[in-house]
Design a protein around this nucleic acid. Structure first.
Lengths: 347, 347
DNA sequence: TTGTAGGCGTTATCAG
DNA sequence: CTGATAACGCCTACAA
């Protein structure tokens, strides 16, 4: 008649042996008699003994938990990455704690503090769009916690990184637009301090330069966040140019869809008068009308790889001299929102 | 020159006082001299003392963590619920552990075992579509862990529940379809052992009965899972009827969109020849063409309420005599995929 | 092969 | 007001 769960002491008492013997038996310690082991294990089974991980955590000074910090999960992008992460981690002894920063630097700070308090063992992170300073991550690293950065880079932070070649994706997309005859290509860019924003912008600019298409400052607009209002505002700014762009390369599918919406409201034909290309290849992008051309990224694989890298560090706690940097190649997916149509609109 | 993090003992030694005094000072115990408190707090600050929650966990026999079990997060539905949960929990002292069952009963079992092992304090759960038996949840409850079920009910399990009136939503949707002149209304149903499937089906049937529209068995098809193949198969079965339905009420937006796709491939006009109504109001449903009529649910609020209910139990660990059952009202959203168009098609 | 003792970091209890 | 002590459940030297 004990209260609470059964412990190794209970087993020990019942069997008239020492708790340490029970512990060893349960852990298959070589120096324990076979019969003892069997007796212990049998009783443990019978009593439905569950090792108290909380006690182990204290002993080992680790939580057996890894944290995943993402800006949001309502879109498909981070959800899919997380699913990849989870499908790897689930086969390890670690638990996952998913934390949402809601694109807020403040909340990200709070999260990091919390994770640090619970002695997290490792962290996967994609910083918020507000985050410019990575000291909070560095602090984690200093206390020995390995960090893997994914998708959104943290420039200046030395860590493992699993990224996408955003520059390449953007370059391809824009060169494609040029190829189909667009020459007033606008860019609806992301929040300014994201690495992804910067790389996609750079890819856009370089594609224009390389193909000797004039760059027009008025054709580049950046959102400051992903709220509906901000996106709409930016889109309108772009489309209210006195000389209308004949194509928009957007930072993301969501921005692209917003742009498409606004363009339709203005009575523009897509792709007749204006072509639109997004980035991310969200699943619904294929279902909107016209179906959105976009840049696909291997999200699930990114999640899996990030998790694997973190696990490998956790298994080899010897300070690794060098960090891995894996860059996935994205792929242009051409659909109905962009079409060769400039024969007419050449004035 | 200590190794590892600073503990209460370090502070005690430095100040020549007892560890227990430090503990009390840090916790603002009333019976501690003001100056002592200040000295302790100052030093703690200076040394960047972080309380070791792992030790606390062991002492209190609780993990200060709540688990959230969902079938998946790549869709908007559960992501939004989780976001609601998180936005509530983040203001408490609890951590969240999000677990994905991938719509698999096996994985759900594994998750529950894990959560039980780490001495989870409470659980929010929406069961997988394969789950027919809720003993694993009952076992959790028996060990004193409060459970709140959300969205998908677990019939027979006594627990707090935060649900949606699926019956009402379905009834409304189908009655609306009848109102615009449809009389060969098909139902593309969800997996059979989900409560939501059952209630939506019942709402569909009752709406037909009440309005004296004949029920045709061939017009009711259920998917067995949410994989693309299965959905496509079921959709085709529905549309390959010798007498084509003039409307489809689908279990979810995703099923509806798949149906729409297939219908388009068959050259059908939507809503000209066939109206389609979904369920969930996923954000992208407004952007597809034609925009999908659907049934909206207050997802974010459901997440928040579920979390609040769980927290209230955690704060009052006295066995609560009765469970709460909260049922949200969904709302029909009419868009372009359903239209009054039967004047013509009446043969 | 097994038992004893100490400790992981914290708090609660009981003295003083 | 503060100090010593025990305890949470487990593991790991060290001893026997």
């Amino acid at each position: 008649m004990k209260k609470g769960r059964v412990t190794i002491k209970d087993i020990a008492r019942e069997l008239n042996i020492a708790p340490s013997t029970v512990s060893r038996a349960l852990n298959d310690h070589p120096a324990i008699k076979k019969e003892t082991k069997e007796a212990v294990k049998a009783l443990a089974e019978k009593l439905d003994y569950q090792p108290n991980l909380l006690a182990l955590n204290l002993l080992q000074k680790k939580s057996n938990t890894i944290g995943v910090i993402v800006p949001e999960i309502t879109g498909h992008f981070f959800s899919a990455i997380i699913t990849g992460v989870q499908d790897v981690i689930v086969h390890s002894e670690y638990n996952i704690m998913i934390c949402l920063s809601n694109e807020s630097y403040e909340e990200e700070l709070t999260i990091v503090k919390r994770l640090s308090k619970i002695q997290i063992d490792g962290v996967l992170v994609s910083p918020s769009s507000e985050t410019k300073n990575f000291d909070h991550f560095k602090k984690l690293q200093k206390s020995g916690i390995p960090i893997v950065v994914f998708d959104r880079d943290c420039p200046g932070l030395e860590a493992d990184k699993v990224l996408v070649d955003d520059y390449f994706g953007a370059f391809q997309a824009v060169e494609y637009l040029i190829g189909i005859g667009c020459n007033r290509i606008a860019h609806l860019g992301g929040p300014l301090n994201l690495s992804t924003t910067e790389h996609r912008l750079q890819g856009y600019l370089d594609a224009l330069h390389k193909n000797k298409v004039a760059v027009n400052d008025q054709y580049v607009v950046h959102v400051s966040g992903f709220s509906h209002e901000e996106v709409e505002l930016a889109t309108k700014e772009l489309l209210n140019n006195n000389e209308l762009p004949d194509a928009i390369f957007a930072y993301s599918d969501n921005l692209a869809i917003s742009a498409m919406h606004t363009a339709k409201e203005l009575g523009l034909q897509i792709p007749g008068q204006i072509s639109i290309v997004g980035f991310d290849d969200e699943p619904h992008s294929a279902f909107i009308t016209p179906a959105l051309s976009t840049v696909w990224q291997p999200v699930y694989s990114m999640g899996m790889l990030s998790a694997r890298i973190l696990l490998s560090h956790l298994k080899n706690p010897n300070t690794p001299p060098e960090y891995r940097k894996e860059v996935f190649k994205p792929e242009l997916v051409i659909r109905a929102s962009s079409k060769e149509n400039k024969l007419v609109s050449e004035d």
